[in-house]
Design a protein around this nucleic acid. Sequence first.
DNA 1: CTTGACATACGAATCACTTCGTAGTAATGT
DNA 2: ACATTACTACGAAGTGATTCGTATGTCAAG
Lengths: 125, 125
Amino acid sequence: MPPKPTDAELEILTVLWGRGPSTVREVHEIIARRKAAQYTTILKLMQIMAVKGLVRRDESARAHVYQASRPREWTERQVARDLLEKVFGGSARNLVLGALSARKTSRKELAEIRKLLDEYEKEAQ
Amino acid sequence: MPPKPTDAELEILTVLWGRGPSTVREVHEIIARRKAAQYTTILKLMQIMAVKGLVRRDESARAHVYQASRPREWTERQVARDLLEKVFGGSARNLVLGALSARKTSRKELAEIRKLLDEYEKEAQ
DNA sequence: CTTGACATACGAATCACTTCGTAGTAATGT
DNA sequence: ACATTACTACGAAGTGATTCGTATGTCAAG
């Protein structure tokens, strides 16, 4: 069970989730667009992430290929669970309130959330 | 604008939100019930939190009295905003999905969440 | 006034995260 | 063959969070 990713690790995971398996150079190029970062910094982070089990790497090619070891949804669930405990006292209602009040939420998104609730109601009958 | 609290700080804030203004000893006693922690560790953390502006302290009595400088809801909103960005790609829908799939959610809680949505729909007309 | 209980202040160790430079090695072009 | 380029590995520094021991001060009881 990989540990909760740190902020820097999350940036890298986001790239891997978006692109699929990637080399360090590819990840670095994308991150460097938004933010100053040396190549070896990204490299080191990804090496550590491999040790932690957050990513897997394929060493068969000279440039190792990394991929997230858990899908985005899985990690999101972990993070949400952690938050629920540590910040929201276990109240999903309060977490949703936090999410909604964090910023303007469009009607369209509210409708999507409603649809989610429908599914969960059905499931819980 | 106080910074985002760390995990250890959040534990202390949770106690302060629950009890209202409290001395270090009171906070320590509650935390020590669940977890080994020396008195001076809690003291130091709370001193640092005061410097950061996460708590205010009243030094008029010999045992200083601390209170959270922001209400729980405010902090919850901050944390939700941060996570929304860093983990959920700005999608409130995905954050809610994460919360619901993190654990069993009761029918009662689902109903409460629905009520929240109603209020937000009205507001957004 | 001295002792004991209880408080704060503070220095220091430890740990994790982040950053980057340097070294070494394999591949590629001239 | 040699120089250049593209990798990985690794050590180490800087920062911030966390932990705790020790020093010191205050107060009340005897």
